[in-house]
Structure formats: C-alpha cells, structure tokens
Simulated scan of single mutants.
Amino acid sequence: MSDDPKIEYLPVVEETALLAIQKVVTGRVRVATQTEVLDHILPAELSSVEVNVMRVPVDRKIEAVPDGVTEGELTIIPVVEERLVVTRELYLREEIHVRRVKQSETVEVPATTRRQTARIERLPALNKDDQDDL
C-alpha cells in the first residue's frame, strides 16, 4: 500500500445467503375403504311364442299340389293324398294351420352388486420426536 494520504481504500464486503429446506409434517390422513353388498330387483322382459296347431278338413279335388302359404302369423301346410278311382285324382285332404302368438311378461330378477365407500380421517401432525423416528 502506498503512503500517499490522498488515496483512500474501501474494503469490499460480500454477503451470501444459504437456503435450507426442512420437511415438516403438518398433518396426516388415513383412508379406509369399505365394500357394501347391495341386493337389487332388476326388471327383465321375457317373451315367448306359443304355437297353436289346428287341423282343417278340406276334402276337395285339386289339379296340382299347392304350395305352403304364410299370411302374417299364420302358416298353411297342405296335406294331399292320391285316391284311386278309374282315374287318379288329387284331393286336398286337409290343411294344417300353424299360428304364432307372441306373449311378453315382465319378471323381477334378483341381482347382487358391490359398492365401495371411502372414509377419510384427518389425524394431527406427529411430534418432532416422532418425526425423527420415521
């Protein structure tokens, strides 16, 4: 350093900061689930088809075997026979009428389902001594 009285010196000072992070437990939560079994009665639509068969005597002479016929829900099935006469003739002996009748009914079907619920319980924070044990 010089001995010159006109020169002054200023010391340079620097401050530094340190940041430390500390984990602190402020509270706890306990979650418990419970499964419930629920019984339900579920509606179900059942349908069925009933078939009524009726024989209808005809006994009429025909020239050719008729085809089966379906008219809506009615099906007609021809039944023929050959009869020996001096000549062979075709007779419609009978028809079988088959009618479909739809029926529906609602039934109750028992069913079991499961549902879970959650219970949440808030607990106090642990003491500092207890946190060190974790």
Rank of each mutant, 00 (worst) to 15 (best):
T16I: 06
I62H: 02
L38P: 03
E8V: 11
V86S: 13
T75F: 06
R30I: 00
S48R: 14
R114M: 09
E45R: 10
V56E: 15
E95M: 12
Y91K: 04
V80C: 15
V80I: 13
L92Y: 01
S104R: 10
E82D: 10
V101T: 13
I96E: 03
T75H: 07
V24C: 07
I62P: 02
V80S: 04
E95H: 06
D39R: 11
V31Y: 05
E63L: 12
Q103T: 04
V80K: 00
R83W: 10
L46V: 10
E82F: 09
T75Y: 04
V31H: 07
E73H: 07
V80T: 15
T70G: 00
P66F: 02
H40E: 14
L38N: 09
L46I: 12
L10F: 12
L90P: 02
Y9I: 10
E95F: 06
K61H: 05
V12G: 01
T113K: 08
E73K: 08
V107F: 04
E73P: 01
V53R: 14
R55L: 12
T87V: 07
L46A: 05
L19K: 14
E108R: 04
E95W: 02
A20Y: 09
V29Q: 14
V53H: 06
E45K: 14
G72L: 05
E108V: 00
E82K: 06
S104V: 08
V56L: 14
E89K: 09
R114I: 00
G27M: 07
L74N: 13
T113E: 15
E95K: 05
E14G: 06
A64Q: 13
V109C: 05
Y91E: 00
V109H: 01
P66L: 04
T16W: 06
L42Y: 01
R100T: 08
A111K: 11
L92I: 03
E73Y: 03
G68C: 06
V31A: 08
R88C: 04
V25Y: 08
L90T: 07
T16Y: 06
P78G: 05
E63V: 11
V56I: 15
R28A: 08
V65I: 15
Y91H: 11
